[in-house]
Design a protein around this nucleic acid. Sequence first.
DNA 1: CGTAGACCTGAGGT
DNA 2: TACCTCAGGTCTA
Length: 272
Amino acid sequence: MPSLAAPGFDLDLTLRSGQFFRFRPDGDGFLLVDSGRVLRLRPQGDRIEYRGGTAAHVRRLLGLDADHGAALAALRRDPLLAAVLPRYAGMRIMTQDPWVCLVSFVCSSMSNMKRIQGNVEGIARAFGPALEDGIHDFPGPAALPAGALAPIRLGWRERFVAGLFARVDPARLHALAARPFEEARAALMELPGVGPKVAECVMAFSLGFGEACPVDVWIRRVGRRLWFRNRRVPDRRIADRFRATFGRHAALAQQIWFQAVRDGVPVGQAPR
DNA sequence: CGTAGACCTGAGGT
DNA sequence: TACCTCAGGTCTA
C-alpha cells in the first residue's frame, strides 16, 4: 500500500472536526469519497497509507500541502490559543470539492453532524453515480424533478438545496478560488441558503481561503469571551479579529477553537 | 442597519 | 410512552 509523509498530522481529529462529511471508519482507518474517488486511508506513524487515489489528491484533500510549521508558529503568537494547541496541533484545513462542500454546509444550518452526514450521504446514494458497491459519488448540479429531494428529509433546507442544484455552475464556483476574498464571499452569498457563515465555510474548506473564518454559535461564544469581554458583537467583528490575529491561518485557528470548545476545553484561561 | 420569528426534523433527555 | 428541547443559519419583515 502506498503511503505519504504526514508528520504530526492527526487524521482522526481532522476528519471528526466537521469540515468534511463523506467519510466513515473502515477497519483501522477511514474510507472517504471525494471528487469521484473512494479513498481508503490509514495512519501509520508519521505517514498516511492510502489506496484509491493519487498522492496529490490525498495531500490536497487532507491539507497536507500547507506549511504547517509556519501555521503553528502563527497560532502560537496568541497565548490563549497556544495554551490549547498541544492537543490540537494535528488539525489541518482540508480542501474538498467545492460543490459538495457548498451543499453540505447549506444542509448544516441548525442541524447536527450526524444528520448533516446522513443528508449528504442520502443525496449521493439517491442521485450520484455508483463508484463501488453501495458507494456513490456526489451528483453534480442538475435540475432535479420536483419533490425528488423529499426522501432526503432536509426539512426547510430542501428549497435551498434544490435551488443550488438548479443554479450552480461548478466551474464558476471553482473559479472563485482565484478571486479576491470579498468578491468570492459576495458571490457565494448570492446563492440560496448561503449567508456569511456558510460562505466562509466553503471558502475555508474547499476554496483555499485560509483567512476565512466561519462564525457559528460556538465561535461566537469563544470570540466574545476571548476578545470582547463576553459582550455581544457582530459576527463580522469576530471574524475580523481572527483575521487580524492569525492572518491566512484564521481558518485553522477557528477550526481548532471550534473543536476545543466542543470537547469542553475551557476558553480564555491564560496558561499559568 | 440591528433585531425578532419562522422554518423541518430527528436524536437525546425526562 | 409522551412530551420537551435543541441543533455548525438564513431569510424576511
